[in-house]
């Protein structure tokens, strides 16, 4: 792979090789997040060499991982603690400076995580550029596909901007795999860029779980209003999820009814996921919810209402009482 790229670089005339892509990668505990690895994949599809940007605590640690990612030519790092919580008021001035000073950047990509979606439009406004949200496909360097209307329409859109800003929907791109040989990427440390920020980070409460992260889990067991109570939600779903080493998700109705935390919500307004197996338990299948899971490889629906719209998208459906079915399924797996 390394030698192929080297060859690729030498035969390509320099005159047309002016563009490069800047990709913002998020880290957690010194590791590049899976959503960010998907962003790298989207960046490789644009075809230009990639510069990655890592900021905040642990970014130097994560840079070691970035070395091994395909097409990465340069790694820009700032370990300033000001960037620790990715406050958009702090991150934006740094990105604006990088994009302004280096006219070689033709694209700037971020993962469509809450952090990425929080600061990307702010950068766009300051630079007078119109970002693209949640791209799911790269058609060409200026044309991309993104879902609209809760995934009921697929929009192919061409950007006329000089620098194209886009957030990348993680579920639409495989996470980039680390290569066995490190690339020859250079590392550049950059200083904190003064921001005039007045927003203060106070605290965060993260739902700690032994389970795989919902966004990147291979199997997701998801519950809806059909589960009637928080007790039922906990007692039926978690043992099943444990059996399958699955992450637990929920419909908006389940969140609103207080069965579980908001951060578990799957849908247009929650997380958009595409696991290998999605088991929808007591979920009717409103368009809002389908927008978040209909790209799953295999969808299993268990619902007592045989008319529920979820059966229109499920590969395997079972009509019946959840109180009987789920414990039996858990036992037999």
């Amino acid at each position: 792979m390394f030698s192929t790229r080297l060859l690729f670089r030498t035969i390509r005339p320099v005159s047309v090789r002016l563009g490069s892509t800047l990709a913002f990668l998020e880290t957690a505990g010194g590791q590049i997040t899976p959503a960010s690895l998907s962003t790298v994949t989207a960046a490789t599809q644009i075809g230009d060499p990639i510069t990655v940007l890592l900021v905040g605590a642990g970014s130097m640690e994560a840079a070691k991982q970035a070395y091994k990612l395909p097409s990465v030519q340069k790694i820009i790092v700032s370990e300033s603690e000001k960037y620790n919580h990715y406050l958009p008021e702090e991150v934006s001035p740094l990105v604006v400076k990088l994009l302004k000073e280096n006219s070689g950047f033709k694209h700037f990509l971020v993962p469509a995580s809450t952090a990425g979606k929080n600061f990307l439009p702010r950068v766009g406004a300051v630079l007078d550029l119109q970002p693209l949200s949640e791209i799911i496909k790269v058609v060409s360097a200026d044309t991309f596909v993104r879902p609209t209307y809760a995934g009921n329409a697929v929009l192919t859109v061409k950007s006329k901007d000089d620098v194209i800003l886009a957030s990348v929907r993680p579920s639409a791109f495989e996470p980039a795999a680390e290569e066995s040989t490190a690339t020859s990427a250079s590392v550049e440390e950059v200083d904190y860029v003064k921001s005039g920020n007045k927003t203060e980070f106070i605290s965060e409460k993260l739902i700690t779980s032994e389970r795989p992260d919902l966004s990147s889990a291979k199997v997701v067991v998801s519950g809806g209003r059909g589960l009637k109570s928080k007790e039922e939600f906990d007692q039926l779903l978690y043992p099943l999820a444990d059996k399958l080493n699955a992450s637990v998700g929920a419909s908006r109705a389940a969140v609103d009814a207080g069965f579980c935390d908001n951060s578990l919500q799957v849908g247009q307004t929650g997380k958009v996921i595409a696991p290998n197996l999605y088991i929808a338990v007591g979920i009717s299948g409103a368009i809002q919810h389908l927008a978040g899971m209909k790209d799953s490889k295999v969808i299993v629906a268990i619902n007592k209402d045989e008319e529920a719209p979820i059966f229109n998208v499920s590969d395997v459906g079972l009509v019946g009482d959840l109180l009987d079915i789920i414990p039996e399924l858990t036992k037999k797996l």
Partner: peptide, 18 residues
Amino acid sequence: RLETVSLEEPVPRKAGIK
């Protein structure tokens, strides 16, 4: 700044079984 090239229905999933 954005030009709509096309707007399409998403590819429907194949019908499953019960």
